[in-house]
Write a protein that binds this DNA or RNA. Structure first.
Lengths: 120, 120
DNA sequence: CGGTATCCTTTTTGATACTG
DNA sequence: CAGTATCAAAAAGGATACCG
């Protein structure tokens, strides 16, 4: 049975948003699918550092939460294509904003981390 | 020394954003500090489910990344107040958007999870 | 190829106690 | 009160093998 230590607070948007998107790969994943990468094997190649197992798990969660859907082509070997649902697409502006923020902040972060490493 | 399995890609905004904000409490934390909750003990009370230890760790990371700063008042017992830096404040619109998205999506998530539980 | 299961390692977390 | 350390428990992650 579905269990959570801390129940979701449906009156708190951040609580809901974190339930759905609170894993570090999910923004990347939706972004990549939106860009047209639809097949699992291509997603593994496209997203630096993700493994098959983790990808599979997060795609499954995104599917349960209604952010993505998939089409199965019964060829051999089988082909599967993921796509964004309407809910998933509604996150795209947010993802774009996050991406933009990250790009703006990148130089500062780089210098911060350089200093950190120097200190050690 | 500072170690990462997957180096940050400074050309990818999402990579940078996830490095800084990719823990599920950080959005909540910045939001709560922005609302005026500044002291660690109050943050623990205000944020449902967070523990002192985790709070401390994430505040430390946010501080290293330049999202928050703190003022130490040398009273007894000591009093510490966290505040948002300019960088931290620059995330507020994003947090607000995320919060709004979550509120909009809440009813749908609630019904999805209800169905999930029924199925088991 | 997509998906699942297994085994094992690494991280994260919770509870607790201690210091200034 | 804020912050750190310790230890045990839980969760997440990598590698691999197998099935349809």
């Amino acid at each position: 049975m579905y269990q959570r230590k801390i129940p979701i607070d449906y009156n708190c948007g951040l609580s809901v948003a974190m339930e759905v998107m609170g894993s570090k790969w999910k923004f990347c994943l939706l972004d990549e699918i939106a860009k047209g990468t639809q097949r699992p094997r291509d997603l593994v190649k496209a997203i630096n550092g993700i493994t098959k197992r983790v990808l599979q798990k997060q795609l499954g969660e995104l599917e349960v939460h209604g952010m993505v859907g998939k089409t199965i082509y019964k060829e051999t070997p089988v082909r599967v294509e993921y796509y964004l649902t309407a809910s998933g697409k509604s996150l795209l502006p947010l993802i774009a904003a996050l991406d933009k923020w990250g790009l703006d902040f990148a130089p500062r972060l780089e210098s911060i981390l350089a200093t950190e490493m120097q200190a050690l």
